[in-house]
Simulated scan of single mutants.
Amino acid sequence: MQIQNSQSTDIDVIFEFYDMAIAHQKKVFNKHWQGFSRELVTNEIAENRQYKILVDGVVACVFAVTFNDKLIWGDRDHDSIYIHRIVTHPNFRGYSFVKEIIKWAKKYALENHLKYIRMDTWADNEKLLAYYTGCGFDYVGMVTLNETEGLPKHYEGISLSLFEIVI
């Protein structure tokens, strides 16, 4: 298994993963992502913030990171790596990629003098809340977003549960 930066040639695969995730979300929960702009993902790739996990050379999981998330984390937005949009291909479920991403993020945070690994998800998604705390994240509260300009559309009018790991 390898975690690598995604390349511009991966963009169609990334969007295939997002489409699979949205279809899955629609089956198992009452909320779902509402798509992402190619410009957003292109910028993430160019800024080395979009990643893929390869298993035997096959893309098995994708995720993105950012280093500021002011609209979600407010005054706590500092010294952090924020993980977003983790999508595992159905053929690779059970590989514990979130735990692998956490290991990778801890190393990244230490090398870059960051103090936190952070994530968010819908506040009422009990299954993901339990999963993320089971992976080592601490639940640190809930936030209702008032301003969402610049965030993907699914952030409009929702409450989020916030998670972090202190490095």
Rank of each mutant, 00 (worst) to 15 (best):
V41G: 01
Q25Y: 01
E47C: 14
A46M: 05
A46L: 07
Q50P: 00
Q34M: 12
K31M: 13
K31H: 13
F36P: 08
Y51K: 02
R38S: 02
M20W: 09
D19P: 00
V41M: 06
R49Y: 03
I22V: 10
I22S: 00
Y51C: 04
E44N: 11
I53P: 05
N43H: 07
I22N: 01
L40W: 09
I45D: 01
S37Q: 04
R38C: 05
A21L: 12
N48G: 02
A46F: 03
F29H: 14
T42D: 08
Y18K: 13
F36E: 15
A46H: 01
H32N: 11
F36I: 14
A21I: 12
H32Q: 13
E39T: 11
W33G: 13
I53T: 03
K31V: 13
R38F: 01
H24N: 14
M20E: 11
E44Q: 08
Y18I: 15
I45C: 03
A46I: 09
F17Y: 05
F36A: 09
N43M: 12
N48H: 07
F36M: 14
F17W: 04
S37Y: 03
K27P: 09
N48Q: 10
V41P: 01
E47F: 10
V28W: 03
Y18R: 13
E44V: 09
F29M: 13
H32K: 04
I45F: 01
I22Y: 00
R49N: 11
H32W: 00
S37R: 06
M20L: 15
A46W: 00
R38K: 06
I22G: 02
K31F: 11
F29T: 15
A21T: 10
S37G: 05
K31P: 04
I22F: 02
K52D: 02
F36S: 10
